[in-house]
Nucleic acid binder design. Sequence first.
DNA 1: GTGGCGAGGTAAATTGTTTTATCAATCCGC
DNA 2: GCGGATTGATAAAACAATTTACCTCGCCAC
Lengths: 366, 366
Amino acid sequence: MAETAPPTSPGAPATPAKPTIKRVRMRDVADQANVSVATVSMVLNNSGRISPATHRRVKHAIEKTGYRPNRMAQGLSGQYTRVLGILLPPLRHALADAYFGEIISGICDKADKLGYTVQLEQAKPGFIKHRKHLELFERRCLDGILAVGVSDRHHFLADFQDRSYPLIVVNNRFDHWKLDHVVSDYRGGAEQAMNYLTQLGHRRIGLITAAPEVRTTREIVNAYRDKLAALGFRVDETWMADGRFTEEGGAEAARALMQHHPEMTAVFAGNDKMAVGAIYALTQRGVCVPADVSIVGCDDIQPGAFITPSLTTIHTPLYEVGAVACERLIERVMGKVAAVAETLPTHLVFRDSTALPRELAGQGQG
Amino acid sequence: MAETAPPTSPGAPATPAKPTIKRVRMRDVADQANVSVATVSMVLNNSGRISPATHRRVKHAIEKTGYRPNRMAQGLSGQYTRVLGILLPPLRHALADAYFGEIISGICDKADKLGYTVQLEQAKPGFIKHRKHLELFERRCLDGILAVGVSDRHHFLADFQDRSYPLIVVNNRFDHWKLDHVVSDYRGGAEQAMNYLTQLGHRRIGLITAAPEVRTTREIVNAYRDKLAALGFRVDETWMADGRFTEEGGAEAARALMQHHPEMTAVFAGNDKMAVGAIYALTQRGVCVPADVSIVGCDDIQPGAFITPSLTTIHTPLYEVGAVACERLIERVMGKVAAVAETLPTHLVFRDSTALPRELAGQGQG
DNA sequence: GTGGCGAGGTAAATTGTTTTATCAATCCGC
DNA sequence: GCGGATTGATAAAACAATTTACCTCGCCAC
């Protein structure tokens, strides 16, 4: 009766192919080393009081068996999942944008270094309605969230004010909600850009902006307004156009500004994609950049350096912002309570899309 | 001696702040609905034979308690993690590249639609040496892997030939290893590009390429060679330059080609970034694109449309390739055994970086 | 009246860790 | 040589699900 298979009914055929590979468990290591599973666990986590001899024995058994701890079991038993989530806006092809890409690269590299894995989450419509942002924690999918590309419109962020769940806002900040954040100094960068343009002699400067529900966008607008006001110019809405953060939008905005103000000699764009679109649109219309109109972008993403003319822009440390945010998030997960509010410096990168205004160009040459 | 530290003595005060929030478990739902946990589990998974009445009662209890199943417990107990991994090459700022971004966007959107989450993995040096690629499965971190940006050099891929673990190669394929893959038709696209250039009258065509260890790259080179050979031209190495897939590399390659062959009238670049770099370098040197030299790129990533001149390029359906690969991977995870080998069509996108060769330009106008 | 069967549900085993309370052995001072 | 620390390791209890084998009805046929 006792054959090779473990049958309950004598006439039953062999078990119908259970392809589950027999994994090596902590139990197996413990047997191999003649210790208990608790000891193995303690060796792996360097906790408890294990003698050097036992430590070696266990290590050896782990080596020999090729044991790897099961993540799901660790997550269930322990307190942490060692997974972080990156929350992205529901933009079509969001990841194809170099802006997000740089930030995410920074996050991933740092997370990897600190032993965390990174999960991508898109805040699709219905995401908030179904409390998905809390569900991620309630279901123990992850330990913390990095919110990228969020704006004042994302009311669900209010749920994180009490700091019950770790969340850090990346490259933005909020007036109404008290949230941990790591951000680039957009105000400072925009001031540098405006100083530079005005020092060159520009006064009739247009602004291409987008999404006023984003605080950093407003900082750029304010820097622009304040600088011109300080010089005694009153800026009205006709000097500003919405570029929707895209190349197409930037192109349209540039055309609109030129329409209203043919006398314009410079354009300041709220990001590089809009600046690239603006250069494209102006060049198409026979307006020469920078001879006729200077252009300054913002963010310093890769493609900006390889268009003609190459783009003068504000360098924002997107990679570093991501990395720092990730590091701070992990600290918070691990119990650090201090609020996070860091601002990383920006600086102007001088390239070929800016020059003296056309009325001063002769003097510059002579 | 026993000061503020956690005391064992009977007179101990309340437990020293255990901040773990009491989560609602399946047990709680079961109690609420006066059924067993098994019944709740079956209701949630639509398995077993549950009467409509009980089904309703359980659903109601779930609603009332706000229960959410614990992912870690599901993963431990069940067969799947419902997590997919995207394996990326260890390039600096890999994600900031629109090429990877498009593919990943496609993957994420599809994964989301099918109820999966996506995890990012970078194949850092040491990754293979430490068997990390297998560890991901052994540790039950994920159900399957999508390999993006891999090449013949990634020997660890051989471990997936036996199909013991689900892996799909995205936008590349292999000669030596039998691996599931979903890929763009680079050969067909390159043929279209070469046909177009030669029909315009170009014969002295340079090639900017990169990474011969990537099969799709070789397909482009072959299409280039074959077309010129068919026209009776023998191409030697001096007509080809390595552009390292980057803008800088493309710029250097273009300069080198012009140095060797001032008579060159067209350049075919293996991706858009190198094409953008080539346009930049040529324009810098006073070579006019497309009047003096035509340029064709490959991949059709966003920025190519907004440079001057806008880039003629081969459109590869990166987003769709990612989405299809993701769908196939999930099918494989779910037990489908058929090999995956899909090729998605490509097509030429005509823009402004191509024109008649300069010796024919007069005729074209006349 | 009882034997068989199917529908509906449950108890209990399983999954692989971490962690806590407990236990056995050793050491030290007196 | 014996009580009290100290050290090193263990057994067992969580953790929260899935899954299987079994149980109890009710019903129908004979």
